[in-house]
Design a binder for these strands. Structure first.
Lengths: 238, 238
DNA sequence: CTAGCTGATTTTGTCGACAAAACAAGCTTT
DNA sequence: AAAGCTTGTTTTGTCGACAAAATCAGCTAG
């Protein structure tokens, strides 16, 4: 009993789960979504605050339809919560939430590291080593820049290196921006900078040696450390 | 530089990531989304076919806005793919996709089993044992009903038992319906029914003994078996 | 003084219309 | 005959208006 027989063309646009990541924003909704997401991650729109469709529509000078669709997308990457007939609010950061998020992250990124050790091309591995060198220069010169952008870039490449589209989408379209939100808003400066670099180095080595099991273990440990570091900031700051 | 100071009330509706799961559909969009999702998972709307907004709007007797929002939600649970200015189509099932999906599933549900062994209340564990008994009756009487509904229910409870909201949302709002789509459309009948029951039993035992590590191992293995079973059907049927 | 009702106001949900982009068919040109 | 332009059609993107639900304020009753 196939109702939609007529529209079954099995058309193939080369769309994959990764589209949103690789493609540039084209529509007005795309741009508004990116602006909103950035404003939320950076804390310009405060965690816990209500998102009024009318207000945002006015502020970004787009129609309410555009705002609604943007909010929907934000909901699917866990940055806002919506309730029918009531509205949306930015998620509230909490020790509990951080813990649960990092538990998931540890599992998924550990897996990504394991798969990356198997599936990354030799070229990609060299690029990764290059990136590490760059980071080393940055760390040596004492810039804090490394913390956010550099770290994100590092994890970003390994996730992509897993070559598992489902995993990539889950992380990069999904929880990764929430991770960033915690990191940015809790402030990622401190003594962990250099330590993290050594951990990164060890992970890259494991991947270079194609030692997938070690890569997973090291990545999991690395994320555990980061989590402890963040938890501490959260409890002392609140 | 806080632009939205005025709207920062930190209002708390007890909304969580789990809302969509526990709450009944209230709005027209909710209902349409559920109908569409069901039609896709069940294969009434064929995998790979294009979703025309106008056509669906007409078919379900709702406005295009409702259809659009439904399609967006379907995209965030990986059931449809969208391309700007072109449209949406139902995902195509493939051996590659199945493999990648189950790789992720193995990791996440393994984790869920481990956490469930730790966090489930004694009452919930008893309920789980009860469920198992019911399934045993069903299997003994030779009904195939067990396959889909029973199995889903089993995994469902363990996922909820993990008590990790992030994980629960990732699985139940996210990939789980895609998993179901593969299962339903590849047909879940066959000799694995009774075998799967034994595996379920072993998992429940591990959880009952609060042996989290064993629970994880058994769950991962269980999902690996299922995956092999499905892969076989996919390659032989295509 | 508190709890609960009532009506006004605000906010979200739904709709149809228009704008803009993609698609399709036929024509032209090489 | 094949590639590319042109025009007409279809489909998606965006908008403003109306409907329905929730919120708020003031009032009433206990």
């Amino acid at each position: 009993m196939l109702i939609f027989v007529n529209i079954v063309d099995n058309i193939d646009f080369q769309s994959t789960l990764m589209d949103q990541i690789t493609q540039a924003p084209v529509t007005s909704t795309d741009k508004t979504f990116l602006r909103l997401r950035s404003d939320i991650v950076e804390g310009i729109i405060l965690s816990g605050s209500k998102l009024s469709e009318a207000e945002l529509s006015n502020y970004y000078s787009v129609s309410r339809a555009v705002i609604r669709e943007s909010i929907n997308r934000l909901e699917s990457c866990y940055l806002v919560e919506r309730k029918p007939n009531v509205g949306a609010k930015v998620v509230s950061l909490s020790a509990q939430g951080l813990s649960e998020l990092y538990q998931v992250r540890e599992s998924l990124e550990g897996m990504a590291a394991r798969l990356a050790a198997i599936h990354m091309s030799d070229d990609e591995v060299s690029d990764l080593n290059e990136l590490l060198k760059t980071h080393f220069q940055t760390v040596k010169s004492g810039e804090t820049y490394y913390q956010e952008a550099g770290d994100v870039d590092f994890h970003y490449r390994i996730i992509l290196g897993s070559k598992n589209k489902q995993l990539i989408s889950l992380l990069l379209n999904g929880i990764y921006h929430l991770v960033r939100m915690y990191r940015v808003q809790l402030g990622m400066a401190g003594p962990r900078v250099t330590t993290a670099f050594d951990e990164h180095k060890a992970i890259v080595q494991a991947i270079s040696h194609r030692d997938s099991e070690l890569a997973e273990i090291l990545m999991r440990r690395h994320i555990q450390y980061t989590r402890k570091n963040l938890s501490q900031k959260l409890t002392t700051s609140v």
